[in-house]
């Protein structure tokens, strides 16, 4: 069964004068463990689709089912709980809180995920995740003291803390040089290999071609959803 399933989904932003149709009639299924990329030019609706998959916004029309559950039936509390537990976000501009240390930025994910773990266990797991992304030596540093690649790796560690089944990455390599971009993409691929569902929004077709499936969007519509050679 599909983990993420969109059926005739549209997203319309009401604007004075004329409404903006960010997504039109999207029908899409993503299975558990798949690694999918979403490509398209600026304004094609990639990020809107990703945030919709991540339960950050509702479809204006159509139906979205997350692991079989109709999202529109969920209230803010259930939806937030699902987002905190089952979905990990990685953003292009990292979104790390400047006042917190690297370790605390990772631990912040537990604040709303309702993990029910003790402080010690949480701390230990956060350290382990930071070790996994190669930042064991940066635990007490502030985000401003890190490079772009390091910040994105902190964001990946944060996304993994609640052990989500889905990782949604919005242009994860967009602000990184090639070396760091490759390293971050490698980490995301490793997660996919570990059985997590990974959805990556990117401009980079070369990078997208390394995912299992590439979904092309144009003017809010899926124009191609074919499997790649990878």
């Amino acid at each position: 069964m599909s983990l993420l399933k969109l059926d005739q989904v549209a997203k319309i932003y009401p604007m004075p004068g004329e409404d903006v149709h960010a997504l039109r009639q999207i029908t899409l299924e993503i299975d558990a463990g798949e690694c999918v990329s979403i490509v398209g030019s600026s304004g094609s609706g990639k990020t809107t689709l990703l945030y919709l998959l991540g339960l950050l916004t509702d479809p204006s029309r159509g139906e979205y089912r997350f692991d079989g559950a109709a999202v529109e039936d969920l209230g803010d509390r259930e939806r937030s709980a699902l987002r905190g537990r089952e979905i990990g976000f990685v953003f292009q501009s990292f979104h790390l809180l400047p006042q917190l240390s690297v370790l605390d930025n990772v631990r912040l994910a537990a604040r709303y995920a309702g993990l029910g773990e003790g402080v010690g266990a949480l701390q230990a797991r956060s350290r382990k995740l930071l070790e996994k992304v190669g930042l064991a030596h940066r635990l007490q540093h502030r985000p401003r003291e890190l490079s772009g690649g390091e910040m994105q790796r902190v964001a990946i560690a944060r996304a993994l803390l609640s052990e989500p089944s889905v990782i949604l990455a919005d242009e994860p390599t967009g602000n990184l040089d090639d070396t760091n971009g490759d390293r971050v993409f490698g980490l995301l691929q490793e997660l996919s290999d570990d059985g997590k569902t990974v959805v990556i929004v990117t401009h980079d077709l070369a990078l997208a071609s390394k995912t299992g499936r590439m979904i092309s969007l144009k003017d809010g519509e899926v124009v191609d959803g074919s499997l790649t050679a990878a």
Partner: peptide, 16 residues
């Protein structure tokens, strides 16, 4: 604004 968005992405409810 972005911090609020991030907290929401991490699972914060409106009440949080």
């Amino acid at each position: 604004r972005q911090e609020i968005g991030l907290r929401r992405a991490l699972g914060a409810t409106r009440l949080d």
